[in-house]
Computed example of a mutant assay.
Amino acid sequence: MKILVTELMWDDGIETLRQKGYTVDYDMELSRKREELLGLLPAYDAVIVRNETKVDTEFLNAAEKVQVIGRLGVGLDNIDLKGARERNIPVVSARNANATSVAEYVMAAMLDASRPLQAADADVREGNWNRKLFTGYELNNRTLGLVGMGEIAHRVAKRAKAFGMNVIGFDPFVAPFDHVVQETGIKQVDLEELLKTSDFISVHVPLTNGTRHLINRDNMRSMKNHVYIINSARGGIVHEGDLAAAVEAKEIAGAYLDVLEKEPVQIDSPLLKVEGIRLSPHIAGLTVEAQSRTAMLIAEEVDRVLHVGQSLCVVN
């Protein structure tokens, strides 16, 4: 059987598939070579993608032999799940494989905002000694608001609690006795209260019609002027133009964005012009450990579907 990998996949996952007897063709840039990809698809029994490969009607029609699609990650907005289901093609995701890495990214963002060591280092190297300028603040007793309370938010909450932070959360799909509330002591609030009372706001919801531009200029005006917004979920949940305007007007302090509406960042993006906004290239879940876990999990689950027809990680 033949498996096509269209984006970055760690070597141990590819080697696992080859040891199981599969022919694996790997081109980490194939997601950006659409016509070539569509021409290759008919020859493969399985395809493994990340977030850049558009698994749409055209893709699915070309994937004549494909029995399973593996997603190296958990976001599914690039995959037509309904279309895959209609064609009886299961989609398996790397459920929770990078959750710890994303949680640590959120903590790193909050620590960077409260103690900007890189900026202090640069200033010292210029011959300065501005102790007052770089007087930071503690995370202890600050309030972290979690928009979405899934597994990643759960892990963020546990770490934030260890720093002495107050953690509140909004998620209409989480009940009062679910583990994320009971095991971490998150206080459930409505979105309006969360946005008004948080010192940091971290986004952990999928991009849907209901969450697109969920964070916008209207509700930014209700936030504290020292708040930081952290988005490691999906671009489009935070309205980027509104965010740039709010930070520039000093209505809020800034943001840490690991995801954007259009990736890579566009040269005319207003985000690039605002000093208080920190950008990273969709790397929150891309630690060495998470890459390995993700690759191994998808390799095992794709093999399981091909040989057994079942997987615990099927999402459609």
Rank of each mutant, 00 (worst) to 15 (best):
residue 2 K to M: 08
residue 6 T to A: 11
residue 10 W to H: 11
residue 12 D to L: 13
residue 15 E to N: 12
residue 18 R to V: 04
residue 18 R to D: 06
residue 23 T to Y: 12
residue 24 V to N: 03
residue 25 D to T: 10
residue 26 Y to A: 06
residue 28 M to A: 10
residue 33 K to Y: 14
residue 35 E to D: 12
residue 36 E to R: 15
residue 41 L to M: 04
residue 41 L to H: 05
residue 41 L to V: 07
residue 43 A to R: 12
residue 44 Y to Q: 09
residue 49 V to L: 01
residue 50 R to I: 05
residue 51 N to G: 12
residue 52 E to N: 15
residue 57 T to W: 04
residue 65 K to F: 01
residue 71 R to D: 07
residue 72 L to C: 12
residue 72 L to G: 05
residue 75 G to P: 02
residue 77 D to Y: 00
residue 78 N to G: 10
residue 86 E to R: 03
residue 90 P to S: 13
residue 90 P to R: 02
residue 94 A to P: 01
residue 94 A to T: 02
residue 95 R to F: 00
residue 95 R to W: 00
residue 96 N to C: 09
residue 97 A to D: 00
residue 97 A to H: 01
residue 98 N to A: 03
residue 99 A to T: 09
residue 104 E to I: 04
residue 105 Y to H: 13
residue 109 A to D: 14
residue 116 P to M: 10
residue 117 L to N: 07
residue 121 D to S: 14
residue 126 E to A: 15
residue 129 W to E: 14
residue 129 W to T: 11
residue 131 R to G: 06
residue 136 G to L: 02
residue 140 N to K: 01
residue 141 N to E: 14
residue 144 L to Q: 00
residue 146 L to V: 11
residue 147 V to T: 04
residue 158 K to F: 13
residue 158 K to M: 13
residue 162 A to Q: 11
residue 165 M to V: 00
residue 165 M to D: 09
residue 166 N to A: 07
residue 172 P to M: 12
residue 172 P to L: 09
residue 174 V to Y: 15
residue 176 P to S: 02
residue 179 H to I: 08
residue 181 V to S: 02
residue 181 V to A: 03
residue 190 D to L: 02
residue 193 E to R: 05
residue 196 K to N: 06
residue 199 D to E: 15
residue 200 F to W: 01
residue 200 F to E: 14
residue 201 I to H: 05
residue 208 T to F: 12
residue 209 N to K: 05
residue 210 G to S: 08
residue 211 T to D: 14
residue 211 T to I: 06
residue 214 L to E: 11
residue 222 S to A: 12
residue 223 M to H: 03
residue 224 K to F: 03
residue 229 I to A: 09
residue 229 I to W: 03
residue 231 N to G: 09
residue 232 S to G: 10
residue 238 V to I: 10
residue 242 D to F: 11
residue 242 D to R: 11
residue 243 L to G: 00
residue 247 V to Y: 04
residue 252 I to M: 08
residue 254 G to Y: 01
residue 257 L to K: 01
residue 258 D to G: 08
residue 262 K to G: 00
residue 263 E to W: 01
residue 272 L to M: 07
residue 276 G to M: 06
residue 283 I to D: 13
residue 284 A to I: 01
residue 285 G to C: 06
residue 286 L to W: 02
residue 289 E to V: 05
residue 290 A to Q: 05
residue 290 A to C: 07
residue 295 A to T: 08
residue 295 A to S: 08
residue 297 L to Q: 00
residue 300 E to F: 02
residue 302 V to A: 09
residue 307 H to K: 14
residue 308 V to F: 08
residue 309 G to N: 10
residue 310 Q to G: 04
residue 313 C to I: 04
residue 314 V to C: 15
residue 315 V to D: 13
